[in-house]
Design a protein around this nucleic acid. Structure first.
Lengths: 231, 231
DNA sequence: TTATTCATGTCGAAC
DNA sequence: GTTCGACGTGAATAA
C-alpha cells in the first residue's frame, strides 16, 4: 500500500465523466493497483477512484502539462472496461509504501438472514396458533423467506426485510400472485415483516391485503436468550 | 488527515455487529473525526468505518487488553446514534498527520438527468412522428420522466433509467395504472428506456405490454453535437 | 426535517 | 461468467 499526499487534479472517464480541480488530497494505491482519491472530510467514499482489476502507470507529463507545473501523471486504466483515471501531480507532500499482507476479513452479524432465523424460530410473534411450514420456500421465481400456516390453516407467505420499502412489497406481491395460481397452495395470504416499514410501502401493502408487521430485533433476540436460559 | 499503519483489531456495533481480527491495516482519520479502516486490497469501501459526525477518543487499554499486547484503544462514537467503532492497536508502523484544506469538489456529467434531456430533445429516436408532450409530467404518485405522443396521437409514458431493472418496470407500471384511470389521458401506453435492460426486466415489461428501448448515450450525444454543428 | 431516488453504487451468492 | 438482491448501503434532492 502506497500513501501519497499530493496537490493534484484528477479526471475520470468511464461510465460518466468527472473532474477534480487542483487541490491537496490523499492518493491511496493498493497492492492490487486500485487507486482511491480522498479529501480530508466527507464520507468513506473517495472523491474519485479506480476499482480492481486495473493497472497504474506513472508517466512524464507532456509539454503542455509540464508548463502548467505538472511533475508527474498517473494513468490508471481498468483492465476490463474503458474506465480510466488520470491524476496530474503538481506537488508531492508525502510518499510512503507499506507491506500489509492479506486481511483475514470481516465477521458480520445481525443482517436479514438472522432476522429470518429469529422470526422462523418464534413464528408465534405473528399470533397464537401460527406455525412454521418452512424457510426459503422455493417458487418458480425464487424463494419465499418463510412459508407459515395461520390458526385457520391458511398458507401465509412472509417476506422479511431489514427496511420495509416499496420494492419489498412488489416482490412479495409477485410471489403471492404466482403461489395463488397453484391449486395445491391457494389461497395464500401475505405478511410483510421488517424492522421498519416506510409509510408508502405500508400503504401499498395494505391496499393489496398484505399484513404489515414491524419486527423488534432486540426483542426477538431477547426471547431467544431467555428461552435458552430456561434450559 | 492522520494516516496510521497499525496492527490492530476492530469492532463495530450499531446497525449490525462486526469484528475484524488482528492484522495490519491503514487507519485513516479525517479532519471531521471520521475514521476509515482499509486493507491493502478490495474496493474503495473500507473494511470498517465511522461516518461523521463522530468523535474519536484515544484511551489507555484496560488491564486485560494490555496483557494481550494492546498499546492503545480508539473509541469512535457517532454523535447522533449508538453506532460505535473500537480499534485496539497492537503495533504502530507509521503515523503521520497532514493539512489538506477544503476540497473544491467533483464536477460530474452523464447521469440520468442528461439521458432524459437528450431523449426529450430527440424523441424521434423512438420512431418517426413521435412528439414530446413534456418532461417530468406530474402524477399523484410522482413525476413521469417523459410524456410523449406516438404517431397515432396516443399518450405514452416513458420511464428512463441508466440501467433498466425490475423496479423500474414496477415504477412505470404504477404510473400507467394510475394514468389509465384518468379519462382525460387514457389510453396511455408505456416505454421503458435505458442504456441497458436486464433480461428479467425486459421479460416483465414486455409481458405487460411495455415497449423496451435501449438508449445509446454516445449516439444521442452525437446527434446533439452534429445538429449543433449545422447552425 | 423527513422521504424518495440515484449511484462510476459495491458486494456476495446463486445459477 | 452472469444475474440477482442486500447493504452499517451513502448521498443528493424534493417535499
Amino acid at each position: 500500500m502506497r500513501l501519497v499526499i499530493a496537490t493534484c487534479s484528477v479526471d475520470y472517464e468511464g461510465r460518466l465523466t468527472a473532474h477534480l480541480p487542483l487541490a491537496t488530497r490523499l492518493l491511496l494505491v493498493k497492492a492490487d493497483g486500485s487507486v482511491l482519491v480522498h479529501s480530508d472530510g466527507g464520507s468513506y467514499k473517495p472523491l474519485n477512484w479506480m476499482s480492481p482489476p486495473c493497472a497504474m502507470a506513472e508517466v512524464e507529463p507532456d509539454e503542455e502539462d509540464a508548463a502548467e507545473g505538472v511533475l508527474s501523471v498517473w494513468n490508471v486504466q481498468h483492465a476490463k472496461s474503458e474506465d480510466r483515471l488520470r491524476v496530474k501531480i503538481h506537488e508531492v507532500h508525502h510518499d510512503t509504501a507499506h507491506e500489509l499482507g492479506v486481511d483475514p476479513g470481516l465477521v458480520k452479524d445481525g443482517v436479514e438472514a438472522h432476522l429470518q432465523a429469529l422470526l422462523a424460530e418464534h413464528i408465534t410473534t405473528l399470533g397464537d396458533g401460527w406455525s412454521l411450514v418452512r424457510r426459503e420456500f422455493m417458487t418458480a421465481i425464487g424463494p419465499v423467506d418463510i412459508l407459515a400456516r395461520d390458526p385457520k390453516g391458511g398458507s401465509v407467505a412472509i417476506e422479511i426485510k431489514r427496511r420495509g420499502e416499496i420494492d419489498g412489497v412488489e416482490q412479495l406481491t409477485r410471489y403471492l400472485e404466482l403461489m395463488n395460481r397453484d391449486p395445491a397452495l391457494r389461497p395464500v395470504t401475505g405478511v410483510f415483516a421488517a424492522q421498519a416499514i416506510k409509510p408508502q410501502a405500508r400503504t401499498l401493502a395494505e391496499d393489496r391485503g398484505i399484513r404489515c408487521v414491524v419486527l423488534d430485533y432486540d426483542q426477538l433476540k431477547g426471547i431467544d436468550s431467555s428461552e435458552t436460559r430456561l434450559f
